[in-house]
Amino acid sequence: MTDPLALDPVLAPEERTPVPSREGVTPDAWVERFEAHVAAGHKVEASDPMPDEYRTAVLRFVEMHANSELMGVLPEREWLMRAPTLRRKLALTAKVQDEVGHAQLLYRIAEDLGKSREAMFDDLIDGRTKFHNVFHYPTRSWADVGIIAWLVDAAAIVAQQALRDSSYGPYARTMRKICWEESVHIMHGRDVVLTLVTGTPSQRAAVQDALDRWWGPLMQMHGPRSPREKDRDLHWRIKAKTSEELRQEFLTIYVPRLLELGLVIPDPALRFDEASALWQYTEPDWDELRTVVTNHGPMSQARLDFRRLAREETRWVRESILAAPRPAPRVA
């Protein structure tokens, strides 16, 4: 599970460009210098001074990512007990475990930025923070497990690869490990899909049905187009690419792969426009996206309820293990 790249040490002070000093400059001038520092592609470490706006923006971004990993466990977890072969069972369990591991790594980054894990869980299950749209939908068949692992993870990795260049050093390093694991998930998902499309007619039909249902959410996943200059996360170089750049990249890689398997992409308007070198597609349903990410999606409340229940049922363990001082062992 460990990617050696993720273990890269934080660069020693003499090996990296330090965040500009606050001494002898006005607060506004310092923020300008800090902006120039990240704009030049230099990194910020957890112990560096940083403007409140930057800290808040990184925290919000990483927390949403962590929430998505944690909630993203649930749709696939519903099929964990139903994996139909020993190999699939091991692969799916390991994949879901990876997502839990990603949540843990990301929550640790967010914790360092000043918000406790419990506070983040509270905000998540009380609906004050969000998680990605794709995890608000039901998983109806084993084919969904393949489509999620292949295409949802693929759409995610397109975004996540760009995050390896994030200005926030701990996040950038963690994304290298996460991308490495996500690429294994994609292979697992593709293998599940490939087995089904080359299987019985009902297996093949299940894959097409899954693709029909997941295509809309996949096209919405990166969000509506927004002007580069207005995006604060791009400004701080927390992320590197716009929503539309990510969606185009996803289509460029995965449309040919889907067609290669004889699957029909449920968008008659989808085509590559040679002149603009861009994919044209039916405008995604942005109302649906807004409805879903504000926890009004088909499975939003059920998933949050499930998370709430699991957290409640295990509270006694955390309270006994994390809170209480350890008594000395008894003597017989």
Partner: peptide
Amino acid sequence: DSEWTGIAPILEEDIAMSSLSQDELGHAA
């Protein structure tokens, strides 16, 4: 025990318990 994957009391323990159940499933295989 793989059923705890994703819902164990603590994230760190979630990962541990999932590894244990994967070991057992590997032995079974």
